[in-house]
Design a protein around this nucleic acid. Structure first.
Lengths: 339, 339
DNA sequence: ATTATATTCCAAAACGTTTTGGATGTCAAG
DNA sequence: CTTGACATCCAAAACGTTTTGGAATATAAT
């Protein structure tokens, strides 16, 4: 039913080849012929059949992005924003985006990657939240499928990445808290198998050491990046004696959970306890009190990763294949009591 | 480089046809032959080329979902959860999901749909937040592309949908507030061009009329479903004299904004002012105070829409092509002060 | 022995595109 | 008049799959 090159060819009386080449803009088509073909194609409502083109060109102009959904719920603002950045940039380059979802760290996570790669559904993929010994990266390297990651990796191999300097970030925020007079500082780290958890821990320890403050090992904890996780971890921290006077959470979502825990403990956040996050999600400036956090431009990173990957696919060599951005400390009332 | 049917055929000494049919499970292949072919395919690491299959089968086993991103940011928990539901269910049926993003109500919204439809990239689409005179629906009906929607529509045409009875929901929550002793009740509706805005408004008015309470027209306002939007609308409401003692927000995200506005106004939410939302996003039970809201099972609806659409694509007739779910009133401390 | 019926196989066409490697015709230069 | 250069066109192959419409052989029924 849909119009094909053959239909146009028959109508205008030229070969399929010529029609194809006219539409593709080759210069071995007479100007007048081209005009006729273009107009006819327009009139007949021609649009190329993409699967056919993909088959012939042996590429799909499609990117893959696999999202981990937490249980039945996925409302991680981090992933949403990244997705928006990737998606909007992909659209700008006329690329499509194939999204696969799956429960996190499930057996079918790799299955999702294999599906996309084996079926030649995508030309490249974007990976986020790189992990220690990341099997996704290992797989894609082994399969020689182009990809770009948000986050560094210790896996050997050459691939572009963008990352935010979590170590420097944690040095900043820890120093800030120390400057505010805090000595008993706790931290709720992201899951330890995530690469950025390591960097942030290192930054925290470095800043504490620098001020010759001891790191209470009981105050170094981990949370699963959800509100619940932050809440629970913070509760455990606040139940201790002595309790910390400041908590740094691995992301804003956990920080929001920590705020709730602190409030339940009867503490005034900002005054009796300081709480800081990481990300600067839109909600961060609207919590009560507004959240001190480290801003990372997630949306922009999504766009950038997408651009890098597409450049890679086009065979261009990247000027800066590895980008390390500095997070920006945004100080709000959750660590600095109102004047 | 990748293994094709031809490679297997040459290796085992049968025709491409037989290899194809053996792998597809037809019964006109000898048992022994099939075993040989299956094993060889396995050994050689065969995986079908999906674009080739799509071309031949004239279907893609792929669904499309277009997401409106708000400005550069998209962190709408509603959309995230719906996406998770759709994505996980699609994976269960071996369907892929093509996601397109675009700024809301931009000219290229329809462009995104056209792109997916014209290029025959997808077999069907899922639409959410149906609008009055929805041009997306009109377009898909005109193109005879299967789709399913979250939300009803007044556009003529037959297509499956799932919706939540917003009118009944608003009757419930309004009654609840009236029962709590509120007389001056305001509402922040979703944008008026969204179908569900109409239903909710009707429910609100019905419940008010039923108790012979006047609806202050200045207290019927609209917000853009963001935290900011809810905050601003609530501020305007609270600046009035007399101010409402209860505010019903069009979704939880706006309710969170309203809570912030109320707090800034020096009001204790739950006690001096009641605030209710709609959706019951994960964050709702973790706000301060926890939010009274109408729960709609967004994740499940995503799955259901996906199932309906796939059934439709398979030519099955749906038992219940139109599903109207009842939202569940979840009463928390934002409307009922703590004991 | 012949016919009918299964069983197992496959050549070829088709899906709609892009690309290769010329073919044809025209025109200016020699 | 020939040659070469250019401009314009196209037949055919290829991408990798599925499906159609039998062919070939073996087995059972007459």
């Amino acid at each position: 039913m849909p119009v094909t090159l053959r239909d146009i060819a028959e109508k205008v009386g030229y070969s399929i080849t010529t029609v194809s080449r006219a539409l593709a803009g080759y210069d071995d088509v007479a100007e007048e012929t081209r005009r006729l073909i273009l107009q006819t194609a327009q009139e007949m409502g021609y649009h190329p059949n993409i699967p056919a083109r993909q088959l012939q060109r042996r590429r799909t102009d499609t990117l893959g992005f696999v999202i981990a959904t937490f249980g039945p719920r996925f409302s991680d603002p981090f992933l949403s924003e990244l997705l928006a950045g990737i998606g909007n940039e992909a659209a700008r380059h006329e690329f499509d985006l194939l999204v696969a979802t799956h429960p996190p760290r499930s057996a079918n996570e790799l299955h999702a990657y294999r599906r996309l790669v084996r079926g030649r559904r995508v030309d490249g993929l974007i990976i986020t939240r790189t992990r220690v010994h990341d099997e996704r990266i290992a797989y894609l390297l082994e399969q020689k499928v182009p990809f770009a990651t948000f986050g560094r990796s210790e896996v050997e191999g050459d691939f572009p990445w963008v990352d935010v300097d979590g170590e420097a970030g944690l040095v900043q925020v820890t120093r800030h808290l120390i400057q505010q007079g805090h000595r008993r500082i706790a931290i709720i780290l992201p899951p330890a198998d995530l690469m950025f958890s390591r960097f942030r821990e290192a930054g925290f320890r470095r800043a504490m050491a620098e001020s010759e403050l001891p790191v209470q090992e009981a105050w170094v904890t981990w949370g699963d990046l959800t509100e619940q996780g932050g809440y629970q971890a913070a509760r455990r921290l606040l139940d201790q004696h002595p309790a910390p006077t400041a908590i740094i959470a691995g992301n804003d979502v956990m920080a929001i959970g920590a705020i709730r825990a602190a409030r339940e403990h009867g503490l005034t956040v900002g005054r009796e306890i300081a709480i800081a996050g990481f990300d600067d999600i839109p909600m961060a400036e609207h919590t009560t009190p507004p959240l001190t956090t480290l801003r990372q431009p997630i949306y922009e990173i999504g766009r950038r990763l997408c651009r890098m990957l597409i450049a890679l696919l086009r065979g261009e060599t990247l000027e800066h294949p590895h980008v390390l951005l500095q997070p920006e400390l945004v100080i709000r009332q959750s660590t600095v009591p109102e004047a």
